[in-house]
Design a protein around this nucleic acid. Structure first.
Length: 742
DNA sequence: ATAACTTGTCATAGG
DNA sequence: TGCCTATGACAAGTT
């Protein structure tokens, strides 16, 4: 009894370890109290113990490379080591450690790894996986595995079945014993049932995949939302709230800009769109570029906060309070331009230094070295309007003073709003092609044929419908007829003797699917009567009048009796042909029409009439022949019509995909342009401030930004003019585009 | 049993 | 005018 107990205890320990390795959570606290911290870690550890990698770490440790300083209990250490060596010594119960690693390494979000992967092919991955995890970034790994705790558990469980398949009778008995002892293994008996587990596995994997994607989308959207809604000035987050002067915003940006409220809806497409696997990379790039832009804005906004911190810098504060800096994106944008000043200035400082600084006149002609480029870029514009000139000295009223419209700002505002709306589109269009491609795949896979040679996703040449259809017809006709003829020749050689061949032929026919004119060419060639001559079998059909019998008899000839199988191949062929014959062919045979339906249908009118004149045919026969011809032609016409329709749809689908690709590309380009435009604006602004700040009047005092402004002249020179003049000119320029619109 | 899909056929319009 | 083709609509068969 004692020995049995010892056996059971040790067996229990072994089995527990094994279960833990397999991935079954085992509650051994009651059995292993105060024992084996490492083992306990293996079994119950938060996460890492369930990864084979951690097991290797442990094993390495136990193998003498080092003992954890905290577990200096040698007794426990040797016990654990003994147990582990016992585990390793279990030949028939070899835990495929390589598999465990492979699961960890290959844990791809698609869940494409099946639970029944063979053991053999995974050795390489295992080593790499080990290196991976034993690398310096163990902490990250651990957190990863911690996240995927349950998944790993399940994955390990998925690996287990091959092991459990190797269970010997003793092992199974042990399992039964354990079960009878009502030991809480933390797992149902199903864990030993491979098929059951695999079913669970599949379901859970699907769930998990969906969940992971949702999580990702949620996090991404959350991050985006944070970026979007962080106030650049205060750092507050104010979801779905906008500056109070929102009406002025919409007035200031009336054209194609989206209403600010759209911002709320901005994120929803992200959530839905990312679920689709289509062109994930491209979509991801789009998303990343957009997120990158937003991150930039937030960063620059943050730097702007610092920049604005000194109260003696009314320049920027005034700037940030400009009334037509619309929604928060725009605020951050403007601020960002200020924040980047210092850096940009370094690039431009030589030029600024070289600027002649006049000091004695109110009208100061300046000739910056890059004035031409600036001029060409922005035209003859009022620089004051560009930058809402600062009101220096802190005496100026922040809100007082007429603010001039910001030509670049307007462009930028509009562009930024566009960009926001385009983000929507980018995500959205990342979704539609998914459906399209999925549809395409379905077409390809379900039909089991290459319906259209140009249909394959790889060949994107969107040829014209007619040409593509014709080319596809020719290509598929050749392939179909070749395969069919091969099967026929086979049949001729071996003889038609089994149902399997019938099935083969039917499958071949089904495989041609959308082009039955090819599959059933034995009854009717497709617009090419010459094909008939290539198929002696057809001639045989056409002229073998010994098969003429009543249609009812033909129809009733279903499965031949067993004795019939032993009859000659001719009769079997006849039966097969009867099944394959169309109604019109049956009718023709019944009416003893002396030529094939193919000839009736496909011969040109002249030859057809000639053919009719050769035979003495009754009125009924002639009528039937004309009907057959009409129906046959119409049948082909209908098939062509359907095929054409399908081609049209597919071509349209392809066109839509192409357009969506183009659209996404243009969107990316636009984002790039916006980015460079913003950088240019920053540089111009820094230049403006630098130049303006260096100007001195006749008394050597700086000019007040509230009273003076720099302005471009038409000839490329820059003038210092009183602000009132600048305002008037700005208003004039503001009216011009409105007049044009009228 | 039923829905969805395929295929053949008819009627009709237009070249 | 007759022939041919295209196509919508319908029905029967098939999946």
């Amino acid at each position: 009894m004692l020995s049995l107990k010892k056996y059971l205890t040790e067996g229990l320990l072994q089995f527990t370890i094994l279960l833990s390795l397999i991935g079954v959570r085992v509650d051994v606290d009651t059995y292993l109290t105060s024992q084996l911290p490492p083992l306990r870690e293996i079994i119950l550890g938060p996460s890492s113990a369930y990864t084979q990698t951690q097991f290797h770490n442990l094993r390495n440790t136990l193998d003498g490379y080092g003992i954890h300083p905290k577990s200096i209990d040698l007794d426990n250490y040797f016990t654990a080591r003994r147990l582990l060596s016992q585990v390793r010594a279990l030949d028939r119960f070899q835990v495929p450690t390589t598999e465990v690693n492979a699961w960890l390494v290959h844990r791809d979000p698609e869940g494409s790894v099946s639970g029944s992967q063979p053991n053999s092919g995974l050795a390489l991955e295992s080593s790499s996986g080990l290196q991976d995890v034993t690398g310096p970034d163990n902490g990250v790994r651990e957190s990863e595995t911690e996240q995927g705790f349950g998944e790993d558990l399940e994955d390990l469980g998925a690996v287990a079945p091959p092991v459990s398949g190797d269970l010997t009778k003793e092992d199974i008995d042990l399992i039964d014993i354990l079960w009878r002892q009502d030991i809480d293994l933390g797992a149902g008996r199903e864990v030993f049932d491979y098929s059951h587990r695999q079913k669970e596995q599949d379901v859970e994997k699907e769930l998990r995949d969906g969940g992971e994607q949702d999580t990702w989308a949620g996090e991404g959207a959350e991050a985006l939302a944070r970026n979007l809604l962080v106030d650049g000035e205060t750092g507050e987050s104010f979801p779905a709230q906008f500056p109070a002067d929102i009406s002025s915003i919409t007035e200031a940006v009336p054209s194609e800009s989206e209403p600010p409220a759209l911002q709320n809806n901005l994120l929803s497409p992200l959530l839905t769109g990312t679920e689709s696997p289509f062109d994930l990379e491209q979509q991801w790039q789009d998303l990343m570029s957009i997120m990158e832009m937003q991150a930039m804005e937030v960063n620059t906004s943050a730097s702007e906060i610092l920049y604005n911190a000194p109260p003696g810098d009314p320049l920027s504060t005034n700037y940030s309070l400009a009334p037509n800096t619309p929604i928060n994106q725009n605020v951050s944008l403007h601020q960002a331009s200020l924040g980047g000043c210092s850096q940009d200035f370094l690039l431009f400082s030589p030029e600024v230094e070289s600027l002649p600084v006049a000091s004695s006149s109110t009208l100061l002609p300046l000739a910056p070295s890059n004035s031409t480029s600036l001029n060409s870029t922005f035209g003859s514009t009022n620089l004051t309007g560009l930058f809402f000139p600062p009101q220096l000295n802190g005496t100026a009223n922040d809100t007082a003073g007429p603010e001039l419209p910001d030509p670049l700002g307007g462009l930028l505002d509009e562009a930024m709003l566009d960009e926001i709306s385009l983000m929507d589109l980018a995500i959205e269009e990342g979704f539609n092609p998914v459906q399209a491609s999925q549809l395409e795949e379905e077409f390809d896979s379900d039909s089991g044929l290459s319906l259209d040679s140009s249909h394959s996703p790889s060949s994107l040449s969107s040829s014209e419908g007619s040409s593509s259809s014709s080319s596809s017809s020719s290509s598929s006709s050749s392939s179909a007829s070749s395969s069919a003829s091969s099967s026929f020749s086979e049949e001729g050689a071996v003889g038609y003797s089994s149902d399997s061949e019938t099935l083969d032929l039917e499958e071949a026919e089904g495989a041609v699917g959308y082009q039955p004119e090819y599959s059933k060419f034995c009854r009717m060639s497709y617009q090419d009567p010459a094909q008939l001559s290539c198929l002696p079998y057809l001639e045989h059909v056409g002229h073998n009048h010994t098969y003429n019998m009543a249609p009812s008899a033909l129809d009733s000839a279903d499965l031949p009796p067993p004795s019939a199988l032993k009859k000659g191949s001719k009769e079997k062929q006849a039966d097969f042909l009867d099944k394959q014959m169309s109604r019109d062919e049956h009718r023709a045979r019944a009416m003893k029409i002396p030529f094939t339906n193919d000839k009736i249908i496909n011969l040109p009118v002249e030859e057809f009439n000639e053919l009719l004149s050769k035979y003495q045919l009754s009125e009924a026969q002639l009528s039937l022949i004309r009907d057959i011809r009409r129906r046959g032609k119409n049948k082909m016409a209908a098939q062509n019509c359907r095929k054409r329709k399908l081609d049209t749809i597919l071509n349209l689908e392809r066109d839509v995909e192409d357009l969506q690709r183009d659209k996404a590309r243009l969107l990316r380009e636009k984002v790039e342009f916006l980015r460079s435009l913003r950088q240019m604006k920053q540089k111009v602004q820094s230049l403006y401030q630098e130049v303006f700040g260096r100007l001195r009047d006749e008394n050597g005092r700086p000019y007040s930004p509230s009273q003076y402004a720099l302005q471009y002249a038409g000839d490329g020179s820059v003038l210092l003019i009183p602000r009132t003049m600048a305002d008037q000119q700005a208003r004039r320029q503001e009216r011009k585009p409105k007049d044009r619109r009228k």
